[in-house]
Amino acid sequence: MLYQPQILEEALTLKADLGGDVDALAGGTDLLVALSRGQWRPKNVLDLSRVVERSEIRKADSRFSLAHGVTHAQLTRLPVRALAEAALSIGGPQIRNRGTLAGNLGTASPAGDGCVALLALHAEMELTRAGRGSRRLPVRDFFLDYRRTELRPEELITRVVVPADWTSAWHKIGKRGSVNISVVCAAVARSPQGRFGVAFGSVGPYPLTAPKTEALLNAAALTPELIDEAAAMAQTEVSPISDHRASAAYRRAMCGTLLRRLLTEHFLNGRD
């Protein structure tokens, strides 16, 4: 059965009533791949692509509040560099027009480009269950294990809240010029108060943060030496595997390389 609610309340009620028996479908850029590969045989589908106000972006208190249906295409125009660049690195225009940030979070792929940017930005998200209201949690608390998250079967991801005044940057290594699954991707962000966020994709069972590296960066002024130290530290914080996309050794080394490059090019000497 396919449900196509027009208002969020209705979607939440359906999700709360059907729980694990219904799959939420946002842009479809992940679920339909699974459908095509025969890995997903839907019983009940909750199509969120018709919900009005799903694309709303609000700015308040130096934060952007993004509704669940905000697409990658919308994000490419958001003045939050890491998130915009992450969005631009996803697929081609056809994918960016459909895929959503909330969907990226829900899929919880280790390579989730948008998730990595959100982690670095210390973003927050809102999970809502009909009748019980919303709970807000840091994106950092959302991922539990490989494709396992805090999202309960009765809940939907309703909003993502991103700081608007952080400096941030993003880099991804793929095997070609565009439409890449990350071999490794990295995001770095810094609050106006100087607090750092560092995150990596495709180097663990889910998108990872690097808290020790962040602590190192938070503790002292940024210098080339500190950057080297952070790059070395970051490599100890990730847990990549070898698969058909790349070796663990390469991925680990690239975490250091990307972090060094991002910090040097965008943060050292007060750049950006």
Binding site: L2, Q4, L25, G27, G28, T29, L32, V33, S36, V45, D47, S49, R50, P93, Q94, I95, N97, R98
Partner: peptide
């Protein structure tokens, strides 16, 4: 083109284009 925007028709359910 779905409402004027390019999409991959393989990644959209027909029902989503109601």
């Amino acid at each position: 083109l779905l409402d004027g925007a390019p999409v991959n028709s393989c990644l959209v359910l027909a029902a989503q284009t109601q």
